[in-house]
């Protein structure tokens, strides 16, 4: 039930992200969404962080986005989050699943350390199965090496 809901939300958030035509984690100002809405979370705060090739460490930029996510989740306790870990296509399937799991876990651990109850968080890895950018060069691969925080209403 919750999974289905999360799936619907993911689709709509991705559609929004696509419309914004900028990198979704840029945390652009000027959002017209209410500050307590998932849309605001996705666009103004940024619902995703990106990783370097074959890396799972959070960059300073990523930590800044996650600080915003943690603050938002602390204020909006009606939401839970599924953190999706993803990899680019330049790795083997099982390894990329393991890499995606590490990336998702890195984000989860960071959010917990920033005060989000771990009971509100869960993770899933998609490895290289769900690219959002389809070209075969670094401009796309860098967008695919990501961890996306997907909100859903209610507890997990």
């Amino acid at each position: 039930m919750n999974l289905k809901l999360a799936g619907v939300l993911t689709a709509s958030l991705l559609a929004l992200a696509a419309c914004s035509s900028s990198i979704p984690n840029s945390g652009a100002n000027g959002s017209t969404f209410k500050a307590n809405s998932p849309e605001y979370f996705a666009t103004a705060i940024g619902d995703r962080v990106l990783f370097a090739l074959d890396q799972t460490t959070l960059t300073a930029g990523a930590r800044s986005v996650l600080d915003g996510q943690a603050a938002w989740m602390t204020q909006n306790t009606a939401y839970s989050a599924l953190i999706e870990g993803h990899a680019d296509e330049r790795g083997t399937r099982a390894y990329n699943l393991a890499l995606g799991a590490r990336r998702a876990s890195a984000v989860e651990t960071y959010l917990v350390n920033k005060g989000v109850a771990d009971s509100r968080l869960s993770t899933v890895t998609y490895g290289k199965e769900r690219p959002i950018a389809v070209c075969s060069n670094e401009s796309c691969w860098s967008q695919n090496r990501r961890a996306v925080t997907v909100l859903s209403a209610g507890n997990i």
Binding site: T56, L97, A98, A101, R102, E108, T109, T123, T125
Partner: peptide
């Protein structure tokens, strides 16, 4: 999360890998 399964030669056992809290 469980993936990468493979049978043993006698077909009685499966090897898998499991990711738990980011460690596989």
């Amino acid at each position: 999360m469980m993936f990468a399964p493979r049978f043993s030669p006698d077909g009685k056992t499966a090897l898998v890998s499991l990711s738990d809290r980011g460690n596989t």
